[in-house]
Nucleic acid binder design. Structure first.
Lengths: 163, 163
DNA sequence: CCTGCAAATGTTATAATGTTGCAAACTTTG
DNA sequence: CAAAGTTTGCAACATTATAACATTTGCAGG
């Protein structure tokens, strides 16, 4: 399952998308939530792209396949997916990416390559722990943690331009 | 326009603003950068508010004092201030806040209270270290780190509504 | 079946945030 | 002063996100 999250290495992406969709369907069934066609299609589009997609990117994609949607349609689907932990919003990019740990209520750490645009979601308990400790020191009660690191991924150090 | 708010502890905020401005002037002199009247005024407005200000908040404030600025004026001033480490941008809020460690090349951790809107910038070396370690594990080279924690500040736990 | 409610989607308009491009004013420096 | 570079003014525009209200769909109970 971690392989699914690694854009650095080539892999069978179609399989990884269908796995994500299957997981999503299971999670929604379990939570009595309706993964409607639009919501599922949005999730699929997000997963098909290794790079985070903006809401209007998704809108455009839906447009090219005949579904002439308006912004609220997409934002509502995204809200649903966020709510159920199926995607993350990357605040520093105004974009959305598939959650690689769907189901486990969590908040990932995102490594965003400035060169190729790929994003890697880490499950970094040490980071979370450090943040929680720092917050506890000043009696602050954390509810949502945003950790986004922009930089260079391994492949783009040295030989830039990998898309 | 956000009303002025008390931070965790009462203090002489005017003094703390003038200190920040004095520091900024020193830093700019040292770096051969021009802290022009607009830039200084924007920095002052940001410091006078304990809550992060949006670019358009600043724009409106400048408007009420007769300076009828356009968005680029504000964004350019903000870019300058960011460049020189005098303010931070809070991505999850689309807003800007004064940097409490200006001059020391660093990246803070921000605790954002959802109740009162105040923001506390921590210097949390443990967090930074944990993030860097996690990035190093996957050979990712971090350049800019965004850490924003939304939650409840001490004053707003229990008795909500502190502005 | 149908009926009525709640959830989901469609539709239109608009708000909020951020950028581009070019001209004018100002600063610095030779 | 004059040239060069930086900063600001200004108009238009691009992108991201939400509000408000109408319509359709799914589904439980009569």
């Amino acid at each position: 399952m971690p392989e699914r999250a690694l854009p650095y290495r080539p892999h069978n992406h179609e399989a990884c998308v269908s796995q994500a969709l299957a997981d999503a369907r299971a999670i929604c069934r379990q939570q009595n939530a309706r993964l409607t066609p639009i919501r599922e299609r949005v999730l699929e589009l997000i997963w098909q792209s290794h790079k985070p997609l903006g809401a209007y990117d998704i809108l455009a994609m839906l447009g090219t396949e005949g579904h002439n949607a308006a912004p609220p349609t997409v934002y509502r689907a995204l809200d649903f997916l966020l709510q159920h932990g199926l995607v993350h919003r990357i605040a520093s990019l105004n974009a959305f990416t598939g959650c690689t740990h769907a189901g486990e209520h969590h908040r990932g750490t995102f490594l965003i390559c400035r060169e190729c645009g790929n994003v890697l979601e880490l499950d970094a308990p040490d980071v979370t722990r450090a943040v929680e400790a720092a917050a506890a020191d000043v009696a602050f009660r954390p509810e949502e943690i945003t950790m986004e690191v922009a930089g260079r991924c391994p492949r783009c150090q040295g030989e830039p331009g990998h898309a």
